[in-house]
Design a protein around this nucleic acid. Structure first.
Length: 403
RNA sequence: UUCUGGGUCGUCCAGUUUGGUUAGGAUAGUAGGUUGUGGCCCUGCUGACCUGGGUUCAAAUCCCAGCCCAGAACCCA
């Protein structure tokens, strides 16, 4: 009776928390003018191997169906988004602003903030390449986090430009570009001495790079400009986002090969958790899938790390139960059903006694479910055409006309 | 895939060191008692040694494998 490895059972109280998160994601996205969509959980395996190579199969749940088709559970939404854009994008006004909350599957060894089944919010702006679109995605990201009550001193968005990194790589004659990306990505996990040592083996002029990595956003831009590297795009992005929660950081690369320039990741300030969200500009993906050249920028955020952080910061609220309860004394079922139907059609959430318990146990049941308002239908009361409305918080009751 | 530490009623915990009678408690659930009206109290019931092998007269306890959980490495879309 054990659950499958890396999956979670969501009892009603757990699912309330998930819905709280989904609703925040949804509300903020709608507030920025994004529209919700979804795609199938199951997809052709090829859709994922085309984008990420055969090695990706190690990380996928895949199988052959009864018609010999190779299929997989989606590990992310983006390939399907690309398919949507290619199939249906021609008739859509640009820019396309879409978001989705897909349930996704990865063949991982579970650890902190990492599961085999999880939810991953995605939002993308497709068909518009400018800093305004990119900064909108970053501002959306900031507000997604703030909507949960997270503050500037709880998280930071680290923004980088892959083009700037690539210019530096050229400038410093670095041959192992992939190796440097990998190392930069690991920087925050490593001890400084270790990082320096590994950097030395990759880069001759490692001192310059080390110095640059130490600099704060403004000085970094100045220094890069002095080196003759184009920083206009990064500067423009920063002019359109809140600098209190965003920094320019050369160590953010993101693992994914398809990002073309600006990339960003959000972290908790304490640095205890892996990235909360991440995203960037990916202008080649849709053409790589065989579509027209289409610029795009997007953000993705899993539920696992966010939940960890919200728990640490005690930002998961108590949920109130606004259901009303109909308690019964004696043989009054018909009246109770009638009252329930009326209340439901009036738009109330209604729970009703279904047991043969006495009034005392019924109130205890309602109370244990967090219900605050009870209608008591009693045989004797009904004979006098009255019912009792009881408030479980104050304990006060008042009589009211039954019809 | 590799490594570390775990797994006893739904939940939390005792028992494992040193194998030995019916695995104990709290809480939750459930039925009832009490009060024509909840939270308190009382009584009964339900309910577990992760699975499979091995060692032994005897295994929750020792050994092996698997499964699952927590975490780390790798990788990370």
């Amino acid at each position: 009776m054990q659950a499958y490895i890396g999956t979670r059972d969501f009892l009603p109280n757990d699912w309330k928390v998930m819905n709280y998160i989904f609703n925040k994601w949804r509300d903020v996205s709608l507030a920025y003018g994004f529209e919700e969509y979804d795609a199938p959980i199951i997809a052709p395996l090829k859709l994922f191997t085309d984008k990420s190579g055969e090695e990706i199969k190690n990380q996928l749940f895949y199988f052959t169906d009864k018609g010999d088709r190779e299929v997989c559970l989606r590990a992310e939404l983006t390939p399907q988004t690309a398919r949507f854009i290619i199939n249906y994008g021609k008739e859509l006004k640009k820019p396309i602003k879409w978001f989705s909350i897909p349930r996704v599957y990865r063949y991982e060894k579970p650890q902190k903030g990492r599961l085999r089944e999880f939810f991953q919010y995605n939002a993308d702006i497709i068909g518009e390449e400018n800093v305004l679109a990119t900064s909108e995605i970053i501002n959306l990201s900031i507000n997604l986090l703030k909507s949960f009550g997270l503050k500037n001193n709880d998280f930071v968005i680290r923004v980088n430009s892959r083009k700037i990194i690539d210019s530096l790589i050229n400038r410093l004659n670095i041959t192992d570009k992939a190796g440097l990306y990998l190392l930069l990505d690991k920087k925050n996990k490593m001890k400084p001495a270790e990082f320096n040592k590994e950097l030395k083996t990759l880069v001759k002029e490692y001192k310059l790079l080390l110095d640059l990595l130490e600099l704060k956003s403004n000085e970094l831009i100045v220094e890069l400009t002095r080196l003759g590297i184009d920083t206009n795009r990064v500067k423009s992005v920063f002019s359109l986002i809140d600098k209190k929660c965003a920094v320019f950081d050369l160590s953010v690369v993101r693992g994914l090969a398809y990002y073309t320039d600006i990339v960003f990741e959000a972290f908790d300030r304490k640095g205890d958790l892996r990235a909360i969200l991440g995203g960037g500009e990916y202008n080649n993906l849709i053409s790589d899938f065989g579509g027209a050249e289409t610029p795009a920028v997007g953000v993705g955020m899993g539920d696992a790390v966010l939940l960890e952080l919200l728990k640490i910061k005690r930002l998961i609220p108590e949920f109130i139960n606004d259901t009303v309860f109909i308690a019964t004394i004696g043989d009054v079922v018909k009246d109770a059903v009638k009252l329930r139907e009326k209340l439901v059609s009036d738009g109330f959430k209604v729970d009703m006694n279904l047991s043969s318990r006495n009034i005392s146990k019924q109130l205890s049941y309602a109370e244990s479910k967090g219900i605050t308002k009870v209608y008591i239908l009693g045989e004797k009361d009904l004979a006098k055409n009255t019912i009792t409305v009881k408030d479980l918080i104050t304990g006060k009751e008042k009589k009211s006309k039954a019809r």
